[in-house]
């Protein structure tokens, strides 16, 4: 497979069925940067003057996001929250530190760190046990709080997270399956700082699939933690993603149409609606052959029967 963009035949490193394309390393990196730039512009996320705080976990999405924002010339620092989940937290912390020292520092960007154990006296698994709450919901509350607090206290203009197309499509599927209407409102890639003390939040990777982001990290030699947080095992999100990926394999572009279609509906005001009865009254009239309602002069049943009769005539 060769790059579909290069004039000379360069070997492609990734095929993108949903875009009918395949890219070499250089063209793929350009493609990813363009997708992020488009999201930033379309959802009015931030400007080159804004100070951005990226929420990093050591995983592919957040480190790739930090990398892309720095490559595009934005002023982006990062915050890492050490959750105190044994080897997983140690390893992810090491990866983030390594990236900050070897890459981000040369762009003048810095890493902030919050260690849950230092403030709460225990890691999140212990906290969850004490509080009789699921670990992931305890974790979510702590992360949301710490990221928002750092963003507001240190006067960042906006907080960016690494949520990708798969995350958003899976979340949308979950919200639709359970008709969580109030959550649907919060699925926009840009959430404004609605009240004092709430940071503006953006998701610049919302146009890119999880696979594309992982590929970007490999191509650009970003050393991220491949191992998952041990608490993620068997989560509903993973199930939804698997289902969506099966659909995607059968018909490329499904995830994108599902999520972007939802965003389109959200941003474009609903047209003045005509009821189904009104529409029927405007468009239907009796069939000139049988009298049943139809949008055409002769209804499709009568047309079909007429055709069948002609075809059935014995040929002379």
């Amino acid at each position: 497979m060769n790059c579909t963009k290069c004039p000379t035949s360069t070997r492609a490193v990734i095929g993108l069925p949903r875009h009918n394309a395949a890219f070499c390393k250089a063209c793929f990196t350009t493609f990813v940067h363009e997708q992020v730039a488009r999201a930033i512009k379309a959802f009015k996320m931030f400007t080159p003057e804004d100070r951005i705080l990226v929420a990093v976990s050591g995983g592919k999405d957040s480190l790739a996001l930090w990398h892309i924002l720095l490559a595009l010339g934005y002023r982006a620092d990062a915050l890492y929250v050490n959750l105190g989940i044994g080897a997983y937290s140690e390893e992810s912390h090491r990866k983030v530190r390594h990236y900050a020292d070897t890459v981000a520092a040369s762009h003048g960007a810095k890493l902030l760190v919050h260690v849950v154990e230092q403030e709460a006296g225990a890691g999140i698994r212990e906290l969850a046990t004490i509080l009789h709450r699921p670990t992931c919901s305890t974790c979510g509350t702590i992360k949301r709080y710490q990221f928002n607090r750092a963003a507001v206290e240190q006067e960042y203009d906006v907080m960016a997270t690494g949520h990708n197309l798969d995350d958003e499509a899976a979340r949308l599927l979950g919200n639709v399956l359970h008709w969580q209407n109030d959550y649907l409102d919060k699925q926009s890639p840009t959430l404004p700082a609605s009240v004092e003390g709430f940071a503006k939040k953006v998701k610049p990777l919302c146009r890119l699939s999880e696979r594309e982001i992982a590929a970007y990290a490999v191509v650009n030699r970003i050393d991220y933690i491949v191992e998952e947080c041990p608490m993620a095992k068997g989560s509903k999100m993973i199930l939804y993603k698997e289902v969506l990926n099966r659909l995607e394999t059968e018909s490329p572009g499904t995830k994108q149409r599902f999520y972007w279609g939802f965003l389109d509906k959200q941003t474009t005001p609903a047209p003045a609606t005509e009821s189904m009865a009104e529409k029927d009254q405007r468009t239907l009239a009796p069939c000139d052959t049988c009298g049943q309602p139809t949008t055409a002069g002769t209804c499709s049943y009568c047309k079909m029967m007429a055709k069948a009769k002609t075809a059935a005539q014995p040929r002379a």
Binding site: S57, G59, K60, D61, C136, G140, D166, D167, E210, R211, I213, A214, V218, V226, E228, C229, A232, K233, S235, M237, I238, K241, E242, N245
Partner: peptide, 9 residues
């Protein structure tokens, strides 16, 4: 062969 799906929120 590297999996790319993550389950975080």
């Amino acid at each position: 062969i590297r999996p790319v799906i993550s389950g975080g929120t």
